[in-house]
Amino acid sequence: MKLSYRKPQMYSFPNLGGLTNRQAAALTDEEFARYMERSKRVEYGKVYRANPDVLMRKMCDEAILVPVGKEITMNGLIDINSTVQFLWEQFQTPRTIPQVLARAQEEYEDEDGCMEREIRSFVKDYVSINFIREEENYETKMD
């Protein structure tokens, strides 16, 4: 029986386990799996918050992010879909990825099983452009 074809997808996750990519790549498969778990634990312990210099404006069914601060050197408008809108609203208060994932699981049906990977990848991408910031020394409180 043939497998069903799925659109190719790429996700990027942060490497927070303490090794360089080259060092991590040299590990055995078993060691690498343990290392990735360790990195994920570090990632999941971090608290993130949306940059207050990026505002979300809603127009009918659409939502747009507008950078207004000097820190973000981008003259443009950022169209976001309803999922990003949901995630953006979650990160208006400091939250960890597991906390946001739990909220998303309450709201959405994850038929393809991609939700967790896509939230992790979203956070990494948004941190890289300073739209989401890591909150230093913030005590995690599960809600």
């Binding site: 997808q9 992010l65 981008m74 003259n75 443009g76 408008l77 950022i78 169209d79 976001i80 879909n81 309803s82 999922t83 990003v84 995630l87 998303a104 309450e106 709201e107 959405y108 049906e109 994850d110 038929e111 393809d112 991609c114 939700m115 896509e118 939230i119 990848s121 979203f122 991408d125």
Partner: peptide, 14 residues
């Protein structure tokens, strides 16, 4: 529940 769709960001007039 709604169906989860991949987060999508499009930058206009970048």
């Amino acid at each position: 529940k709604q169906k989860w769709i991949r987060p999508q960001t499009t930058i206009e007039k970048f």
